[in-house]
């Protein structure tokens, strides 16, 4: 029985890893070789010349950078905006709090996909199509992040805030040096989800950008692929170049990422 579990486990692991291993191996295969069986992909001759060709001959690196840069900006700005709003919702006793809460809650019900068409028109009216701003700003309002952070802020005892106030600390000091450090796990969790969301955002860049210097990976990759469907080496080099940085990031921050993802489920 134990062996049965082990075999199933290893089988699943191999199944999950195999497409990626295949991608990596094909990407270093010499171009134009005859492939008659799957084994041929894994045998020499190898060559890195296609890497050179793709990196110098296309804008793939630029697009990776765009994806990364936009994801970082979106993540940081979303965190700042949502943490500030969540803090106000949780700890500042202003009038109309209940109204504001439902106003934000309503945003949870509006799926981004359903307002993309008018959003295009709005972005056009604002003149931010084809710009980094146009790629970043429309995705910053995250009612989800606010509501999650608010409930984490709710957990911070008010005695703590009062003692800071008695010591003469203002609202910013409470926010920056008490609330944020105490809710760090939640912030990290939101950051990871936001980063991955932005990294994979396809539809909005697809609609709003036509300048290929501003393409992100999900947008740029298809434009390269159309030219190379006959040979697998170039597509796999493209896939690999686009994936290695993010995979490396994952391996470095594995623990935090896994923790962040699992935290997002606890509250469900």
């Amino acid at each position: 029985m134990k062996w049965f579990y082990r075999i199933i486990s290893m089988f699943m692991a191999v199944l999950f890893a195999f497409p990626l291993v295949w991608m990596l191996v094909v990407s270093i295969k010499k171009e134009g070789m005859k492939i008659t069986s799957v084994v041929d992909w894994f045998t020499p001759p190898y060559s890195l010349s296609v890497y050179h060709e793709i990196i110098t001959g296309t804008k793939l690196i630029q697009w990776s950078w765009n994806s990364f840069f936009i994801a970082v900006c979106v993540t940081l700005l979303t965190l700042v905006i949502a943490a500030m709003a969540g803090f106000a919702m949780s700890k500042v006793p202003f009038r109309y709090r209940m109204f504001m809460f439902f106003f934000i809650l309503a945003g949870l019900l509006i799926p981004g996909e359903a307002i993309l068409i008018p959003l295009y028109q709005v972005a056009k009216d604002l003149g931010i199509l084809n710009s980094y701003m146009g790629l970043i700003f429309p995705v910053l309002a995250s009612p989800f992040a606010i509501i999650v952070l608010k409930s984490f802020f709710d957990g911070v005892p008010n005695d703590l805030l009062e003692s800071v106030q008695i010591d003469g600390g203002g609202i910013w000091r409470i926010f920056l040096s008490i609330m944020l450090p105490l809710t760090r796990p939640a912030l990290v969790s939101i950051a990871i989800l936001t980063f991955i969301g932005s990294w994979n955002n396809f539809l909005w860049p697809f609609l709003s950008v036509t300048d290929d210097n501003l393409f992100t990976l999900p947008m740029g990759i298809p434009t390269l692929m159309n030219q190379y469907t006959e040979d697998y080496v170039k597509p796999m080099v493209i896939n690999t170049v686009a994936s290695l940085p993010i995979m490396l990031l994952f391996l470095i921050f594995e623990r935090q990422i896994i923790k962040g993802v699992s935290l997002s489920g606890i509250k469900g």
Binding site: F16, A17, N239, I246
Partner: peptide, 10 residues
């Protein structure tokens, strides 16, 4: 988990 971090295009 690692396939989940691939770009949707990849």
């Amino acid at each position: 988990f690692i396939p989940s971090i691939l770009s949707v295009a990849v």
